[in-house]
Structure formats: structure tokens, C-alpha cells
Nucleic acid binder design. Structure first.
Lengths: 264, 264
DNA sequence: AACGGTGTTCGGCAATACCGAACGGATATG
DNA sequence: CATATCCGTTCGGTATTGCCGAACACCGTT
């Protein structure tokens, strides 16, 4: 089976795999045989597990078929988990205000050892043209939030993170060399905000800025995301200053202290 | 133990109880002994389960102590579950627009046999002064969304729902008699929107309107929530018309068809 | 220094979660 | 129209494995 170092509970692990499988599946839902085949278990065992998950609302079953879909409890738990997180609780009103002011989608990422994990998002008005998942470690070098975080690290930390993620390419604009990244970070340290000019996805432009705890350590970054249009340098600068202002506001409300960014 | 009619998996059920326990706990996190005592299990068994949940990101452990807190995966799953739900996907831009237009917190509830289940929320600007959970069945008679849904039911359905929830009182403004509720619903059917004038919580005012599927059946309702201020009847009417317009827009984008509301 | 409180590890027993076969229904195929 | 093939479901039997309780190590307090 799977190599699990510490003591675990197998049936629970298998159940959680089922949840991820269904959540990652299509919006049509998944059938029992399909699920059993995917996880390589017997139909009867999978059925018992699915019933348990449905009982707790983690999944819901839609007739006819029976097909399994993500349940309401997941939304409830996600909402409660967000309410539990002090950072999200403080950040959300700020994200909302910045979204309204800029008309863009605003997200907040936590600094996870140099990697950004987006934990909340407030959509801008208009139809949502892109979807970015929450709660997962993202690539640091192709997102404005990630680069804003990187710019607050020491050079050796940056090198370590760059090595860990491999500086993989996502689009033709992605920065894939360490020297290129270093140059970019120098620029970020000068202007105080980071950009993502179609480096992660075609047609998407982002601006991000870091925020800090009361030790002056970078807790994460907020970013504004929109569809790429022809922005003048001045417009980018204005947006950058706006994002910085709200990031500073977040730092302040977290009783944090903004560090002097390392110039070189 | 618990009386479980169909075949289930006990260890999974116990694990999910742990998740709910921790999510419902304080923001400080819960200790192992505390959790074991609460669920009435041995520390070793609970520890193994907790480790599994931590491994999957459902919980996270914070040192020192080890204390257990809701994990990032819950946020991720909640976000994915919301993205899976066609209603949420369609509704969110509309909620965002209405929130921006009205400056209020907008929510959308699904009609669950006459009961509202709020499944998404877009906060208005400014500090959030109230928190309403998502994904749980709420009382139908003390929320504007609930009453907007009720007004689309037949009279016997309303009576059935009223019996089921007992018309319990939440504030001194709560409607607790069936005749009072019937009168209120007649009014809602006339004006097309429902209000909640501090009937669920002191100082909170809401306006809600229903939306429909392509059979003309009431799928749910959206509502605008704000702090109670001295609103003139005209202002309430204007807000009501605004909410109706966005609810109708939602109906339209769901390829739904608005029913002629039953006058009497 | 001895205590109550942690979290942790370990062995052993029995509960129980798994499997596979068999059934019934629905849909597709000849 | 009959046959075949999928589906979901039920049901025992087996042994896997998840549970317990005791013992350990650790810290803070008394």
C-alpha cells in the first residue's frame, strides 16, 4: 500500500481520497463504479464509505444514477475555516474595499516558506473569466503575490525557493532564469510592488504587494488580478501604489510593522 | 454507539466528528486530550485519526502544545465545491454587482423544501459586523430570503414548513403566529420582495427576493443585509425593487422563468 | 523533589472494514 | 422480443486493522 511513516487510519485516508476525487470530478457527478475503479477498491467498501460521507454532508447524491457530488458541508466547513483564520477575518474587508475601488479581483496569499498560498478572494464586478483555486501552494515566480513575497526574502532564501520550484515556465513571459528573477526582484524592491504580466496565464495581469507581522516578517501578499489590457506605465504605477496602500493598511490592522525593503 | 441504519464506516464517521469539533472550537485550537475527552475515545486512537486529517490538510497542528486547528484543505474544498455548484457560479457575479450597487452584504440561499440554505455571500465594503454561516438550514420565517421562498409555496406547504420549524422566536420582532406569517406573506406577494426587520437579530435589516428555474419553480432567494437604520418606506421600496431586479437577472441567467406570484 | 498534566509509543485482542459472489433492475444489443 | 451487459445493492466470511489501556517521556507547577 502507501508508505505511511506515522500511525494513521487507513479507512479515513481512503475516505478523504474519495472526497478529493469527487470534488475534482466533473459537475455531472461520479458514479459508484467509476469511483471504485479510480481508487481501486471494491464497490461494497466504497459504497459504505460514500454513504458515510453523504451522511455527514461532505458529498451529496443526485438521482437518478446515483451520482455523487460535493456536498454542502464542504462549503460550510470552508466558510468556518475562513472565519477561524485571523488573517482572513482581518483581510476580507480590505480586499472588498480594494476590489470596489479598483474593479478587479483581489486575492490574499499567505507566505508559506516563500511560496504563496492564496487563502481568500473577492471577485470584481463583471463576469469571472478566470478561476484560481484557494488553499494550494502556487508557483512563486509567476504570480505577483509570489514575487512580492520573494522580494522580502534574503537572496539565499530566494535561491532556495527557486531551486525548489525549478522556475518552470507557464507562458512565454514566465521568468525561468535565476538572473532574470533576481533582476525582477531588484525592481520590485525599488518600486515596492510586483507585477505578473501574463507570466502565469495568457491575458492575465496582476499587481501584488506584501504585508507584515509585528516582527516585520513578511506574512504574505495581496494582489489585484484583471484581464490584460494595454496599460501605460503610469497606470501600472498607480495601481501598484493603490495595492501597496491597502497592503500597508492590512499590515497596520494586523498590528504589523513594515520592514524597510532591501534595496539590493 | 450511534444508531446507523445503513452500512457505514465507523472510523470515518468518528474522523468527521473530529473535524466538526475542531472547526467548531476556539481560534486557539484544541489539544489532543481535550478532543479525546469530547468524543469519548482513547487518546491513541484519536491521535492516529488526527494525524490522518493533518496529513490531508483538513486540520493543521500548531506548536507548541500541539493544538489542532482547521486546515487549508477545508478552504480549498469549500472553494471547489462552490465552483462545482452551477447556481453559485452563475449567482456570484450578480451578488458582486448588487453588493457594489447597494453597499450591502448580499447572500444567496437555495430553497431546501421551504427552508433557506445560504450557499454564498459577498460582503459589502466596511467592517463586517455580523457573521452568518453558509451551508446550514436556516429558519425560514425570520429571514428575508426564507420568507421570499415561503411566499412562492402553496398555503398548505407554508403550513407544513411552519409546523416543522415551530415559528420559534429570535427577537421581539419575530413572527411567531401562523396568522401573522400568512399576513406577512400576502404582503410579500403583493410587493414582490420580503423584508426582515430585526426579526432574526437585533440591529439587522434584510431585503430578499426569489428566483426561479425553467419550470417556474422557486429555486431560492437572494437577500441584501445591512445594519438597521431609519429607512423610509420609500427607501425600503427602492431597495426591494433593486433586489427584485437582480433576482430576476439571476432567473434569466439560469434560463429560468418567473412565475406569476399568487396574489392571495 | 514529587506531582498532575501533557503527548507519545507499543503490544494484543477483538471489532470491523474489506472483499467477492450473488441478486435485481435497468438499459442497450442482437 | 429476447439476450446480454452494465449498473447499484445486499450479504456472509475472513483477516485486516483500528481500537484500547498501560507504560513511557516530558514540562510546568506545587
Amino acid at each position: 500500500m502507501a508508505e505511511v511513516a506515522p500511525t494513521q487510519v487507513g479507512s479515513v485516508a481512503r475516505a478523504l481520497e474519495l472526497v478529493e476525487l469527487v470534488v475534482g470530478g466533473s459537475t455531472e457527478g461520479m458514479a459508484l463504479s467509476e469511483i471504485a475503479k479510480a481508487v481501486g477498491g471494491s464497490k461494497s467498501a466504497v459504497l459504505a464509505t460514500l454513504r458515510t460521507l453523504v451522511d455527514f454532508g461532505y458529498l451529496r447524491v443526485v438521482e437518478p444514477g446515483p451520482k455523487y457530488l460535493p456536498g454542502m458541508m464542504l462549503i460550510r466547513l470552508g466558510d468556518l475555516a475562513a472565519a477561524h483564520d485571523p488573517l482572513i477575518a482581518v483581510a476580507r474587508p480590505i480586499l472588498t474595499q480594494l476590489s470596489e475601488k479598483s474593479g478587479l479581483t483581489i486575492r490574499v496569499a499567505r507566505n508559506d516558506n516563500g511560496f504563496p498560498i492564496f487563502i481568500d478572494r473577492v471577485d470584481g464586478p463583471g463576469f469571472v473569466r478566470f478561476y484560481t483555486p484557494l488553499g494550494v501552494r502556487e508557483l512563486p515566480h509567476v504570480s505577483s503575490a509570489g514575487k512580492a513575497i520573494l522580494a522580502e526574502l534574503s537572496d539565499e532564501e530566494i535561491r532556495s525557493v527557486a531551486k525548489e520550484c525549478g522556475l518552470v515556465s507557464r507562458t512565454k513571459n514566465s521568468i525561468t532564469s535565476f538572473t532574470g528573477l533576481k533582476k525582477e526582484i531588484d525592481h520590485i524592491r525599488q518600486v515596492g510592488f510586483a507585477t505578473d504580466d501574463e507570466e502565469d496565464a495568457q491575458g492575465i495581469f496582476c499587481v501584488g504587494a506584501a504585508f507584515f507581522d509585528h516582527f516585520g516578517r513578511c506574512l504574505g501578499a495581496i494582489s489585484a488580478t484583471g484581464v490584460k489590457t494595454d496599460l501605460t506605465e503610469e497606470q501600472v504605477n498607480n495601481l501598484g501604489k493603490l495595492v501597496i496602500r491597502y497592503a500597508d493598511q492590512l499590515t497596520k490592522e494586523l498590528h504589523g510593522r513594515k520592514t524597510v525593503r532591501r534595496a539590493i
